[in-house]
């Protein structure tokens, strides 16, 4: 197995570095496009780990520095929250 095949970029959605490189090579060259085609950044952590890694890999492979890449939108809620907690029926604790 190649090294990049067991390097996980998005832990929530199991995107490997190999797959990410393949997607960039196919022409998905922005964070938003990669998110939408691969689900990277759509899991419980909402991209907290993978965003920066993906942006760096795009920069490496396309030559577009991170500061010139279109930023992807941050969406609410900023932390996963139970529907019951939104209704106030249940405390919102991290480990609940």
């Amino acid at each position: 197995m190649r090294n990049d095949e067991n390097t996980i970029i998005c832990r929530c959605e199991d995107l490997t570095l190999a797959r990410l490189r393949q997607l960039i090579a196919e022409g998905y060259t922005t964070l938003d496009e990669i998110k939408r085609i691969s689900r990277a950044g759509m899991g419980p952590c909402q991209g907290r780990t993978c965003r920066a890694l993906i942006e760096r890999e795009i920069a490496n492979l396309t030559g577009t520095p991170i500061k010139d890449q279109p930023p992807a939108k941050y969406r609410q809620p900023c932390q996963p929250v139970k529907l019951a907690a939104i209704l106030g029926g249940e405390p919102h604790a991290k480990d609940s």
Binding site: P80, L83, E90
Partner: peptide, 11 residues
């Protein structure tokens, strides 16, 4: 039962 589910994103 969906009350136990966590919302991760809205748009």
């Amino acid at each position: 039962p969906l009350r136990h589910l966590r919302v991760v994103r809205q748009w």
